Structures are given as structure tokens and as C-alpha cells.
Amino acid sequence: MSPASIFKNIVPKLALTSPMLMNAIFMISGQCILRFDPYFPTRPYDYHERLLQSLIPYIAEKGQIEDEATLVAAILLRNFEDFHAGTQGQSHLSTFELFYGPEGWVFDMSSPVVQAALILHVHTEVSQALLNQPTLRINYENFILPALISPIDEVSWGNRILWLTARILQWAQKSVRTMAEWQYLHSLVDEWERRRPASFDAFFYQEGNPHAVGGGYPELWFSGACHGESN
């Protein structure tokens, strides 16, 4: 979700001086480990509780999040709770308000960390909208990040189609929709298909076999996670 690999290269360094973010990383790590090894002695909810014990007083004192490390910790908290509780996961905070306040965008949107956190928020909104059709709260008619307007790398191309997906879902939730709007959205997706790098093409395809054990679904193989998810 970040051309600069923010979550790999920068977030761990931020955690060295932010106990909240460190607990958030351990919380998400424990959650991931348990998906593959349910008997591993990790306790993600212990880190979840530690994070809340710090984050709730922080927000109560300051009224909003003011630093990037705490912003990322809050985003990871939201994703952790969504994973465990689905549509009811947003129990401790709305991440939309972390970015947008009465006077507009709260953070410096040119920051790579803020941009990566925002895209993660968009990813969550899209996932929830596909499953449960809640209201998408960002105005997706505007590309607020320059990299979404003119992508220059594979990650930005992937983020652009994610943003367009959110825009289409938002259009579908309108009470009044026109064919002209639909055709315009269709043209934006067609443009993405024409201009995206060739690396987004599947390098292997296999037809499905309905008689196979397990359903025999068709298979598409991609060289990277962002390619598969974008498709």
C-alpha cells in the first residue's frame, strides 16, 4: 500500500520510541501467527488491552491524534477489531475522524506515513462496503493523493484501482444515479486496464473443473500481492 514500504521500513523504527505502536505491532503479529498456529503461546488481546490503556487517555487529553506513530497504532487497532468482530469491530474509535476534522484534513497529507495509513483506512472501508454496504465517508470523487492521479509505480497503480472501487461503491449507494455517471466510472476502470503495467497480468491461468474435489475453481497466478489484489 506504500511505494516506500512504510510498514516494513519506517513503522518499526517509529515503534522504538512509541510504546503504543510497539504494542499494536505485537497485537497484529500475534493475530497473524494464530491464524497459522492456534497453539502458539501468543496473546494478542494482552497487547490490545495495553494499547487501549495508553490510547484512550491520550485521546481524552489531546482531543485528537497528533503524531504519526499513534495514528498508525490506531489504524492497526481498527483492523484488529474488524478482523475479530466484523461490522461491529469499530468499537473504540472511528478512523475516519483520525484523518478528517471540522476544518478538513487533520494531518499533512504529503507525509508518506499518513498516506500509507489513509490507504489502509480506504482498504478497510472498501472491504466493509463489499460485505455490508455501510456508508463510505471519504469523498472518493477526488483523488486527494497525487500518486493516485498519475501513478508512477506498481503500488500506486494498485492504490488507484482500490480508490476507484471505493468511488464505484459510493456511487452505488446514492439514491439518484445516472447512466452518464456509470459510463464515466466504467471509462476510468477501462483506462486503468489499458495503462497499468504489464506486471499486473496473470502469468498462469487454469480453467476450473466443476467435477474436482473442493469445487475446482479457476486459478490465476500473479507475481506479487498487489497485482493479485488489484485484479
Rank of each mutant, 00 (worst) to 15 (best):
M1R: 03
P3T: 03
A4L: 08
F7P: 00
K8L: 13
N9I: 05
I10P: 00
V11G: 00
K13S: 09
L14T: 06
A15D: 13
T17R: 15
S18M: 09
P19D: 11
M20D: 01
M22K: 13
M22Y: 12
A24E: 07
M27H: 08
M27V: 06
C32Q: 13
L34C: 13
L34I: 03
R35G: 09
P38F: 15
P38G: 12
F40R: 02
P41L: 07
R43V: 05
P44E: 08
Y45E: 13
E49A: 11
L52I: 05
Q53P: 01
S54M: 14
L55V: 06
I56H: 10
I59N: 01
G63A: 06
G63H: 11
Q64H: 06
E68L: 04
A69T: 05
L71Q: 08
R78S: 12
D82T: 12
D82N: 14
A85C: 09
G86C: 11
T87K: 11
T87F: 15
G89K: 04
G89L: 14
Q90N: 08
Q90D: 11
L93F: 10
S94F: 10
S94V: 06
S94M: 06
T95I: 07
L98P: 01
L98D: 05
F99C: 03
Y100F: 09
G101E: 08
G104L: 05
W105L: 05
V106F: 06
F107I: 02
F107G: 02
S110M: 09
S110Q: 10
V114G: 00
A116P: 00
A116Q: 00
L118D: 01
I119V: 10
H123A: 08
T124Y: 03
E125Q: 11
V126D: 01
S127K: 15
A129N: 04
L130K: 14
L130C: 15
Q133A: 14
P134H: 11
I138S: 01
N139Q: 13
E141F: 07
N142Q: 12
N142M: 12
L145Q: 03
A147Q: 05
I152C: 12
I152K: 07
S156L: 04
S156Y: 07
N159W: 10
N159D: 15
L164R: 04
T165P: 05
T165N: 14
A166N: 10
R167V: 02
L169Q: 07
L169I: 07
Q170L: 04
S175M: 13
V176Q: 12
V176M: 10
R177W: 10
T178M: 12
A180L: 14
A180K: 10
A180M: 13
W182S: 07
Y184M: 07
S187E: 09
V189P: 00
V189D: 01
V189W: 05
D190P: 08
D190S: 15
D190T: 15
E191P: 00
E193N: 15
R194H: 13
R194V: 09
P197Y: 12
A198V: 15
S199G: 13
D201R: 09
D201V: 02
D201Y: 07
A202P: 02
F203A: 13
E207G: 03
E207W: 11
E207K: 08
A212S: 10
V213Q: 11
G215T: 04
Y217Q: 02
Y217F: 06
P218A: 13
E219N: 03
L220R: 09
F222P: 02
A225C: 06
C226F: 11
C226D: 06
E229G: 01
E229Y: 11
S230W: 03
S230N: 00
